[in-house]
Write a protein that binds this DNA or RNA. Structure first.
Lengths: 212, 212
DNA sequence: TGTACATCAGTGAACGCGCGTTCACTGATGTAC
DNA sequence: TGTACATCAGTGAACGCGCGTTCACTGATGTAC
């Protein structure tokens, strides 16, 4: 373990800029999580060290370490949502509903593979804060609700309005499967996995019945 | 936090019965995990307290706390395998291949729901030990290999021998989906889940193409 | 049958460490007059 | 334009805690003679 960060310095924020530190703390916690690969590494003193401040300074912005983790998770869900939205935007309006659905699913899997530690923490059971993915309809106040909404939309793409419940069900089973895939890819890398895209396509094809 | 366990006593094992303590340590660690709901609760001193011995006594049986966790995980995989095998036995030979497959999947999900903390730790990324579910073919030396083998058999039930690769693929996507379902049920209880059996049946029906 | 002794299955005290949390404080920065 | 002062954004020292790990030890149990 390298102690380089111990000597890190930082100039004090000016008056009225105290809120900057809050962002730095969350960023440091995120960095600590992704780099060490363990949620346990997110410790009040560890985060303070990473930011370059003393431990008590954290209390000005967070009540405890759980609040920091929840902020990390909140940011991660926002980032996931943006990633899914961007994937849809990249497809444009000319793409088929199938292509758009694949793009969303791929973006979801990519996010999980690129930030495996954050993804894992996002779907841990949390003691505090709103539960992730708590509502199928877009519920901006609930973590992951909007991301799930994008998935529902993509699944329901060309579905008739009467089939909305159908889209929610399809999105749920698809979410479950992709989440399982992402989790196991991370947890059991030694398993003889097929090509990632192949398995993802198989899941989509089988779980989302063609509407033709 | 109750400290009742601090006063727990235990009579020393007789000569040659030192190995009994090993089992007690693993059992205590399992208990600690399921009751507190956190892997962090499995601590060398905590386990010793739970067993009723002093901390240094653990070193006679395990090198470190990771080794204890690996033993807990090993036992859990054995238990999972037995649960799946029992489910198949209960079905008998007269049942249809579909019924047998459903029984295995249901047993898997039941295990995860009844021991959520253990299940979670089974599929964490572990630093040491063999990786879980590392081989599709029955590989007794690999954690979960036999359990996966049972799933492959159940999926391949009435398949012709030429379709073995098919069965492995089907079992993989099914495992991925059921694992995702089990994980999310635990992590996001607030999500408006459909009836557990309904979603499980949907997954099986869609992911394992009928062989008729 | 008795007894010395090796060994087994642990104990008890001690250590250094990083942690969360508290408390009084400090020094730069703006603001009122 | 100058200056006293409140406030902001933190600091530095200290505390008690549970942890992993070490070390010398102890007392019951079996065994050799």
């Amino acid at each position: 373990v390298v102690k380089v960060s111990r000597t890190r310095r930082r100039t004090q924020n000016r008056r009225g800029e105290g809120e900057k530190l809050r962002g730095d703390i969350v960023a440091a916690a995120t960095e600590l999580l992704e780099e060490t690969g363990s949620e346990d590494a997110i410790t009040l003193r560890g985060v303070a060290r990473q930011v370059g401040i003393t431990a008590p300074s954290v209390y000005g912005h967070f009540d405890n370490v759980d609040a920091i983790v929840m902020a990390v998770v909140g940011d991660a869900f926002e980032e996931l949502e943006v990633a899914l939205a961007d994937a849809l935007d990249d497809q444009g309006d000319t793409s088929s509903a199938e292509a758009r659905l694949r793009a969303v699913c791929r973006a979801y899997l990519d996010f999980a593979r690129e930030s495996p530690q954050r993804y894992r923490v996002m779907f841990r059971r949390h003691r505090t804060g709103p539960n992730a993915m708590s509502a199928p309809r877009p519920a901006p106040d609930l973590l992951g609700g909007r991301a799930f909404g994008l998935l529902v939309d993509a699944v329901g793409g060309s579905a008739d309005p009467g089939g909305l419940g159908h889209a929610v069900t399809d999105a749920t089973v698809l979410w479950v499967a992709i989440h399982g895939y992402a989790s196991l890819l991370d947890a059991v890398p030694a398993f003889p996995w097929p090509e990632p895209d192949d398995l993802l396509d198989t899941l989509i094809q089988r779980l989302v019945p063609r509407r033709t």
